[in-house]
């Protein structure tokens, strides 16, 4: 059976559509051939296409393969594309519970935390389309006012309301975009992740981090990233030890 699957895997490496690759990878996953399933899922990604399900399955395969860091990395990517998917959120939380080291002294910014929790269930695209809808509606009302020349209080109230909605949704969309795409986040994927005081092997080790921790990349120098942990501790870590979300 496994041999058959491997043959199908090899044949799939030739000319196969992403859907076919995906099905083949799922079969390998079911056969507990997690490494091969990972290779096949990654091959779809190499073709330059992505989907929440692809990232989700990839996260699962890594998790089963014992690679917690990569599992969390792909769950995070899946959640970014589809934050409302309960399976993704559930598996991400589950995987995180296995992180060996938890940050102590994490201070939560209440405003940022509120905004994050408010926008978390929505996709960036959804928010962008809502903003766009408010924008179009506003201009339709402006056309009625200035293009057609209608003047009444209901129209005025409609313009003000739509303008307020547009501002709110534009802000929320900008926040989501900044949070998900502009802030450079990374996951520690290596088993041993020494965090150093400077960007060199000679620098002291400040702490030993663990795979699965999420950090924010602040800058880079040579082979090192300067990263910020959730509890605001900073340190330098080799680039190959982390993967950008």
């Amino acid at each position: 059976m496994i041999a058959l699957l491997i043959v199908s895997f090899l044949s799939a490496t030739c000319l196969a559509t992403p859907e076919e690759d995906f099905r083949a990878a799922n079969e390998l996953y079911e056969a507990r051939e997690y490494s091969k399933a990972i290779d096949l899922y990654l091959r779809i990604l190499d073709q330059g296409e992505e989907s929440p399900a692809l990232y989700f399955n990839l996260g699962n395969a890594y998790f089963k393969n014992g690679d917690l860091g990569h599992a969390i990395l792909y769950y995070l990517r899946a959640r970014r594309l589809d934050p409302a998917d309960n399976d993704i959120v559930s598996n991400l939380e589950f995987a995180r519970s296995f992180t060996r080291v938890q940050m102590a002294g994490v201070q939560i910014n209440p405003i940022k935390s509120f905004l994050e929790s408010a926008v978390e269930p929505y996709r960036l695209n959804t928010l962008a389309w809502i903003s766009s809808l408010a924008f179009v509606l506003l201009f339709c009302l402006l056309i009625l006012r200035f293009g057609v020349g209608l003047r009444n209080s209901a129209l005025r109230a409609g313009i003000i309301t739509t303008l307020v909605l547009l501002l709110v949704f534009s802000f929320v969309t900008s926040f989501k975009y900044r949070h998900d795409y502009l802030t450079s986040r990374a996951v520690l994927v290596a088993e041993d992740c020494p965090v150093r005081t400077g960007p060199s092997e000679q620098s002291d080790i400040e702490l030993e981090a663990a795979p699965g921790l999420v950090v924010e990349i602040l800058s880079e120098s040579g082979d090192y990233f300067n990263v910020l942990f959730q509890n605001k501790r900073r340190g330098w870590i080799r680039k190959e030890l982390i993967a950008v979300v």
Binding site: P18, E19, F22, N26, Y29, I44, L45, G48, E49, E50, S51, P52, A53, L54, F56, N57, N60, A61, F63, K64, D87, S90, N91, F94, A95, L124, N125, Y177, Y181
Partner: peptide
Amino acid sequence: IRYIKEKIGKLRPVGQL
């Protein structure tokens, strides 16, 4: 963990916004 998804869903270019 919850089981893998059977359908790949709608594919789109990586990073397309």
